[in-house]
């Protein structure tokens, strides 16, 4: 039983962290793009903005279990296989990108409007505004977004068993739910609860550390 659990925990960690890294980077870029293409923003571009909006909305409306199966050809193209833990990382990343992007956009929207005036008046370029003003100023919100993405990914990863991804959620479904192994179910859920607590605690710690507002 211990073996099953440690192996599952390893799979969960691999899936969650690798896909969180991918989703955070691409989600940050997409979130910033969503914000800066709005009217009166530094790279205002209505058509591009509408396109991005549409992509994010479609991405967020597809149920994860469907996405998992629907993008199998893409998964095979990227990692060479459509089955296993590594293969699960692809749909997990793609599923989390629009989610992260929306949260990052929200974090940027909360910045006071005056900051942009000050940055423009100082003669910053658009790139400098993003790197020197938007990202550092919104960092507490961005870290919060990444924390939420991590927790969501722990959840999503439970469905990765469908394509042989393994992980704790898969153990909970197969042993606990399907075989009615109460002990196993309880243990996996306990580990998941502790894991999520740890993610949230660390997230809060980093937000506190970089928040000088």
């Amino acid at each position: 039983m211990i073996n099953i659990l440690t192996q599952a925990l390893g799979e969960t960690l691999l899936m969650v962290f690798v896909s969180a890294i991918v989703a955070s980077i691409l989600g940050l870029i997409l979130g910033i793009a969503l914000e800066v293409t709005k009217p009166h923003q530094i790279l205002s571009h209505p058509q591009a903005h509408h396109l991005l909006e549409m992509i994010v909305n479609i991405g967020r409306s597809i149920p994860f279990i469907i996405l998992l199966v629907a993008i199998i050809p893409l998964t095979r193209l990227i990692v060479g296989t459509s089955i296993g833990t590594v293969a699960a990382i692809v749909p997990l990343s793609i599923g989390a990108i629009p989610f992260t992007a929306r949260l990052v956009e929200g974090a940027l929207m909360e910045l006071p409007e005056g900051l942009l005036d000050a940055a423009n008046a100082m003669g910053l370029s658009s790139l400098q505004i993003i790197t020197k003003v938007f990202i550092p100023e919104a960092l507490p919100g961005i870290i919060n977004s990444i924390t939420m993405t991590l927790v969501t990914l722990v959840n999503y990863s439970a469905m990765a068993g469908t394509i042989g991804g393994g992980g704790l959620g898969d153990v909970a479904i197969r042993y606990g739910y399907q075989r009615f192994d109460i002990k196993m179910m309880f243990l996996t859920v306990l580990i998941l609860v502790l894991f999520v607590q740890l993610i949230q605690y660390s997230g809060n710690y980093f937000v506190k550390k970089c928040n000088h507002r």
């Binding site: 006071p112 005056g114 900051l115 000050a118 008046a121 100082m122 003669g123 550092p136 100023e137 507002r213």
Partner: peptide
Amino acid sequence: LRLIRRKIGMIFQHFNLLTSR
């Protein structure tokens, strides 16, 4: 415009400082 703006200082009612710095 960006370069000329650097030679025009501006201050605001709500200061608009960077809180992260």
